[in-house]
Simulated assay, not measured.
Amino acid sequence: MNPEPLNGRIDAALRQLTGRGARISITAVAAELGIPRSSLYRNAEARELIAQRITEERVNAGSNQAEEVHRLGVLIDALAGRVRNQEERLRQLEGRPNTTPR
């Protein structure tokens, strides 16, 4: 088996899996290609390509999680501000003194 065409097919399969948001693994790539897993396990270059993509995916997932945590923090802060404004309006409507420190 010539490794060059297989490597190109593996790269295409990895792009397809990534595009669908599927988990990258040798099993997933083999299923995408319609070949036995053993064909990939025996090919050192194929294993390396897949391992690199798995590493990239983990790094990207970590940075995506950090971005999502930051985004959620900003949303929570904005919501907390709206709640404070509504509480103040309610106090004013009810004629209660402002007892909450700012």
Score class of each variant (00 low, 15 high):
residue 45 E to T: 08
residue 92 Q to K: 07
residue 3 P to F: 13
residue 19 G to C: 01
residue 27 T to N: 13
residue 74 V to A: 00
residue 86 Q to K: 14
residue 3 P to Q: 13
residue 86 Q to F: 02
residue 100 T to P: 05
residue 38 S to L: 13
residue 29 V to D: 00
residue 2 N to R: 11
residue 94 E to Q: 05
residue 66 A to Y: 12
residue 43 N to P: 01
residue 25 S to I: 02
residue 94 E to T: 10
residue 7 N to D: 03
residue 55 T to K: 10
residue 60 N to I: 15
residue 75 L to D: 04
residue 92 Q to I: 06
residue 100 T to S: 12
residue 99 T to L: 12
residue 59 V to M: 08
residue 39 S to P: 10
residue 92 Q to F: 02
residue 18 T to H: 00
residue 63 S to F: 13
residue 34 G to E: 03
residue 9 R to P: 00
residue 88 E to H: 12
residue 38 S to Q: 14
residue 18 T to Q: 11
residue 78 A to H: 12
residue 36 P to Y: 10
residue 33 L to W: 08
residue 39 S to A: 14
residue 75 L to I: 08
residue 97 P to D: 11
residue 18 T to L: 05
residue 22 A to Q: 01
residue 31 A to M: 12
residue 39 S to E: 14
residue 22 A to I: 10
residue 71 R to Y: 13
residue 55 T to Y: 15
residue 34 G to K: 01
residue 10 I to V: 03
residue 10 I to L: 05
residue 76 I to G: 11
residue 26 I to H: 04
residue 60 N to W: 15
residue 8 G to S: 08
residue 16 Q to H: 11
residue 30 A to K: 03
residue 53 R to S: 04
residue 77 D to C: 11
residue 72 L to M: 15
residue 31 A to S: 05
residue 43 N to E: 06
residue 49 L to F: 15
residue 64 N to R: 11
residue 80 A to N: 10
residue 26 I to Q: 01
residue 87 E to M: 08
residue 64 N to H: 11
residue 22 A to T: 07
